[in-house]
Structure formats: C-alpha cells, structure tokens
Design a protein around this nucleic acid. Structure first.
Lengths: 182, 182
DNA sequence: ATCAGCATGTAAATGGTTACATGATTAT
DNA sequence: ATAATCATGTAACCATTTACATGCTGAT
C-alpha cells in the first residue's frame, strides 16, 4: 500500500476497509505493530506528519522495501484461504435436516446477493466521491477493480446457491414421486 | 460431521481433506482438542472402537448435540473470510510494476485454472471409488456437491482474471496509442 | 523386513481480532 | 457543546497451523 504513496497507519486501515477487506482484511492491532516491525527491518521509514498537536506518522518504502515488493508481486500466490459458513451449512444440511435443505440453500443465496448489493452501494458511494473530486484520476483505481471482484464473486455465489436449491428441489420431488407421492 | 454417522477424529480429518477443505480446513491440532471439549460440554460422546491394540474412539452426537446442530444450520451465516494472495498481487501490481500488470493477471488466471483441474482430478478419483463400492449411495454425497463448488469457483476466478488481463491490455494499448505510440 | 496408512495426541508458534485507552480536530 | 472523525497504540484472547512424538496394522 505504501508503494502507491506514503501513508499513515490510519490511512492504510481506511483503504483496506473500502477495498481489499473482502479478500484481505486487517485490523489496527495488526497494522501498527507491523509498521513498526517493517521499519525495524529497514523496509519502510516513517516521517513525522503531525498536524498541530495531533500526532501523525506517514511511512514510505525504502529502496530495500521497493525491491521486496517487486519480488513479492512476481512470486506465485501461496495463500488462498476461504471460510464460508453458509457453504458449510449447506454441506451438512442433508444429514441434519434433509427436508429444509433446499430452503437453506435459498437463504444462503439471498445472503450472498445481499452482500453483493451492499458492496454495490459502497461502489456507488466511492464513484460519487470520485466525481466530486473532479476529473483527477485516483491513484487507488485498483481498489475499484477489486471491489468489482467482490461484487461479482458474491453474485456468482448467490447464483450457485440458487442453482443448488433448484436441483435439491427437483431431487426431492423426484424422490417423492418414486415413493408414490407418500 | 458426526450428524451423518459416528466418526473418529482421524475419519473427520480424512473427510475434511477430501471435501470441505476448500472452504473450511481443519488440522489434527484443532480436531482432537475440539472433540474433547465437545464431549466435556455434553454435545458428543465417545465410544471405544479399538481394533486389537490399535486405539480408536468414535464419537456421536448426544440429543443436546443434535439440537445444537439443528439450531446452527438454521442460523444466518456469520463467517465469510477470504484471503486471496493472487488478488492482492493484482491489486498492487499497478503501483509496483505497471507494465507487468496484465501478465500477472494472466498468471493468476493460470493458477486458479490449475487448482480447478486439481480438484477435478480429485472428483474423478472419488467417483471411481464410489463406483467400485457398487451402487450403494454414499452418506457423504454432500461432499460431492461441495467439491463441485470448489471446482466451479476456481474456474470462475480463472475467467475473472483472464477478463481482467484482457481489459488491462486494452487499456495499455490505448494509452500507448494516445501518446503517439512512443 | 519395511513402508504406507491408521490412529491419537501435544507444545510452541503464528496470525489475527476485540476491546480498551487516550487524545486532537473539525463540523454541526 | 457535542458528536464524528482523525490518529495511535497495547493487552488479552482466540483460532489455528506446524512440527513433533508415539505406536499399531496390513500389504508388498
């Protein structure tokens, strides 16, 4: 994040929350100690940017930090972690409550679609802010791409659960028919 | 997992690794202590199922455990966490190495497609095992649905990165044209 | 005999969140 | 005046992974 421009810990947190949070969240408890650690290791340097009595430190990459960033961006991705409780619930619905399975899938679909809508609202808000800034191009344009990813992925998840629900209903009605409608 | 049938910690680990791992992984260091904790809390009970001198404990849900499972499956999903390093790299590529951005997107696309293929191979393997078992229907059929999710999601991710790469290339060539091809 | 797979477990470390604490500045 | 937002930071806690330790059983 410091590659684009020098930032304070607070600004990093803001940027994470309005863009990367859907695929890589971060808390203050992680950001501030990490900035210290990176400075000690010589990857970044902090400069005082206090406004009056309000303390503020902006960090920027050192040459060593820039090299490390370039190396990282070229390296094959190592981490892909997903924890999806809705999917876990569908996974187990068959053994816990078979008759409600399709309904549960539909609820999970609604859940994902709602998240997509929420992200869409955030996108619109950022677009409005962007326009208000004038025609100047934001240096964090990548965040819009990635926000779009969040929206489209949640839409895809919603559609997947919808499809799963339809298939489950079909299977259920077929089973009922096979048993003579009992 | 114990709702479908009684299982040992080892069997739970096996099932996680061949199905749920893509959206909810678990290690022995988590499974065994958790089984103990659940037994102490009265949600499950363990029964000795040793074979000769080889120690083995299978756990099953108590009535209390079944109630808790049913309650959980009806509750709205709380956890959706994603940590996607490939996406993070694309997010930052613009500020770290703009000219390589499209290539990086294409590499990430290949990465996701490879994961999808890997999962597809696992699916084929499970299908073969299933057939070898005869016509008997597996009680873990839900795991196949969810494995399909893993495959389809990775395919979607691959396509998304492919699209992103194409768009980035178009933007680059347009920028080159605007600057008079310099 | 030896190796793959079955089976259980723990200790240490890691990575991260939550909650708390403090205070300045700006807008209403 | 007061609320929102800017700004930094720590302590306690939590979930989880990694690495290690141990031993049995069946197949080659």
């Amino acid at each position: 994040m410091l590659a684009a421009k020098p930032r304070s810990g607070y600004e990093i947190k803001q940027l994470v929350d309005t863009s990367a949070r859907f695929f890589w969240a971060a808390s203050y408890g992680q950001i501030y100690p990490e900035l210290k650690r990176l400075e000690d290791a010589g990857f970044i340097t902090g400069a005082d940017a206090s406004q009056g009595n309000r303390q503020r430190t902006v960090f920027k990459l050192t040459a060593k930090g820039k090299r490390a960033a370039k190396e990282w961006i070229e390296s094959p991705p190592q981490v892909f972690e997903l924890r999806d409780e809705g999917l876990l619930q569908l996974f187990f619905a068959g053994s816990i409550d078979p008759v409600r399975t399709a309904e549960i899938a539909r609820e999970r679909a609604a859940s994902a679609t709602a998240t997509a809508a929420e992200l869409r609202a955030l996108q619109d808000e950022l677009d409005r802010k962007h326009e208000a800034d004038g025609t100047e191009y934001s240096p964090d344009a990548g965040s819009l791409t990635v926000l779009r990813y969040g929206i489209e992925m949640n839409e895809w998840i919603g559609e997947w659960f919808e499809r799963a629900a339809t298939e489950l209903e079909r299977d259920t009605s077929r089973a009922v028919a096979a048993s003579g409608g009992r």
